[in-house]
């Protein structure tokens, strides 16, 4: 890639930041150069973010209908899945799946709740409720 081919697409995924790439200048010499974004990369990032967002939206509906506990929403909202949440908390997956049931989650003891709270960087109270839809 030549220096003048380095894309400057101002990708929203960079949030105004610039990242460093290595490209060849007119003499063919490699030099570090900043890039404000590249569309193909931004598309892939946005696809990944959109997946988490749609999962969180569906989860919110399920929680509002009383089918799932708020934990289910927070998991997706924190860009996690069942496997990752299990790894981050050290809880078995079947236990977490059980905690997706509203009644069981509501009666959870503080110790287990704190493990979720630490992994998701939220207070136990935040975990037990749905945040306002914004």
């Amino acid at each position: 890639m030549r220096v003048d081919e380095v894309p400057q697409d101002n990708s929203s995924t960079y949030a105004g930041h610039k990242k460093l790439l290595y490209a060849r200048d007119v003499d063919g010499h490699y030099t570090p150069i900043q890039s404000s974004g590249w569309e193909p990369e931004a598309c892939a990032t946005q696809d990944a973010v959109a997946l988490y967002e749609s999962q969180a939206r569906e989860a919110r509906l399920a929680v509002e209908q009383g089918v799932k506990s708020p934990l289910y929403f927070h998991m997706y909202n924190c860009r996690m899945d069942l496997l990752l949440l299990s790894q981050l908390t050290g809880l078995w997956r079947w236990r977490i799946r059980r905690h997706f049931k509203p009644q069981i989650f509501a009666s959870l003891n503080n110790g287990v709740l704190m493990r979720y709270a630490v992994a998701m960087d939220k207070t136990p109270i935040e975990l037990q409720t749905l945040p306002d839809n914004s």
Binding site: M1, A23, P40, E41, C43, T45
Partner: peptide, 24 residues
């Protein structure tokens, strides 16, 4: 699309220097 996008992300997203470290 998600599978292919995942390949692109691993290759291009921040921290790779472009083209999956090939330019570095």
């Amino acid at each position: 699309r998600l599978y292919l996008g995942h390949i692109v992300r691993m290759q291009e997203e921040i921290g790779t220097g472009g083209a999956g470290f090939r330019f570095i």
